[in-house]
């Protein structure tokens, strides 16, 4: 199946959150990267039909998803970035509720809910009220509810937010096993999460997809722009103020190795290194936060 956005635009008043976006997605895991406010959540909301585009459209196999209605949502799973829950529901109760909304019959709902609770590591807490859950536990419950209907299109907005390293690994494995013959789109700020599981990266900026491709393909765009150099530790502060630094590592001899993103060698003796996704991210979003 093929999910495609055509001239997709969403405006909030004068603010354009998604701007004439065109992309076609087929089976695979897609990582959506972008700075805060780039439009990731808005794009995902449009994909999930919880918001209508201002103009443009999204088609599944050539049919408008709004026209498909129930038939589209039947194959859709969505983890919102921020989602509400019913504080007095138990984890299992909540899943059963969502399962009913997704049209699962009772028996199947129970079976799938319990299986998913196990897969996200909540089987021991299935009868606890959601209001007693930690942030990460709620997040995992959110992931479970998105997968209840075994969706062909799974959209996860910052699924790893709030997960501890162990749970992040569990999540990656879950998604890797799940993603065969499906479309999985996930956004995150934790670039390493995407590096491991995403087959393709969509990099968003100002409501547009500025890069789209396999991780090594899109990092090749900044080949020659990532450097490593060794500087005295005492002067690191000076460098961080003026350079775009993606990483620094203290050595024992009173020196620090900087990983710098720059078009020109930052200091004499800097060596070019292979760019990774984090470098790419910083290359494009340097200074976004200060704006």
């Amino acid at each position: 199946m093929e999910l495609s956005a055509v001239n997709l635009t969403k405006r909030y008043g004068s603010k354009t959150a998604v701007n004439r976006l065109n992309v076609t997605l087929t089976n695979g895991v897609y990582g959506l990267l972008g700075a805060n406010g780039a439009g990731k959540t808005t794009f995902m909301r449009l994909l999930c039909t919880v918001q209508r585009p201002t103009s443009g459209k999204i088609d599944l196999d050539g049919k408008n998803i709004w026209k498909l209605g129930e038939r589209y949502r039947d194959v859709l799973g969505y983890l919102p970035q921020h989602f509400g829950y019913y504080p007095d529901f138990t984890a299992l109760g909540f899943l059963l509720y969502v399962a009913a909304l997704k049209g699962l019959d009772d028996r199947k709902a129970k079976k799938v809910s319990n299986k998913l609770l196990e897969e996200v590591g909540l089987s021991g807490e299935s009868r606890r009220k959601i209001k007693t859950f930690s942030g990460g536990m709620k997040q995992r419950l959110g992931i479970a509810q998105a997968m209840l209907n075994d969706p062909y299109i799974l959209i996860l907005d910052e699924p790893t937010a709030g997960l501890d390293p162990k749970e992040r690994v569990r999540f990656r494995n879950l998604i890797s096993a799940y993603s065969k013959d499906r479309i999985v789109i996930l956004s995150t700020h934790i670039v390493s999460d995407i590096e491991f599981i995403a087959e393709k990266i969509m990099m968003m900026k100002d409501g547009e997809i500025i890069h789209f491709g396999r991780p090594h393909e899109i990092t090749s765009g900044i080949d020659g722009c990532v450097w490593e150099c060794s500087v005295p530790t005492s002067r690191v502060e000076q460098y961080t103020a003026s350079l775009n630094i993606s990483n620094l590592r203290n050595e024992e001899n009173g020196r620090t190795v900087l990983r710098v993103i720059a078009d020109q060698p930052p200091v004499a003796g800097a060596v070019k290194v292979q760019p990774n996704l984090e470098d790419l991210f910083l290359y494009y979003f340097k200074g976004e936060d200060e704006q």
Binding site: C48, V50, L76, Y78, F83, G84, K102, N149
Partner: peptide
């Protein structure tokens, strides 16, 4: 009561906008 966040989940589910 749903507009404070659960609407995301409800409205993206199969029956959210219809039977629900």
């Amino acid at each position: 009561g749903e507009y404070s966040g659960v609407d995301n989940i409800i409205l993206s589910s199969k029956y959210g906008r219809t039977k629900c």
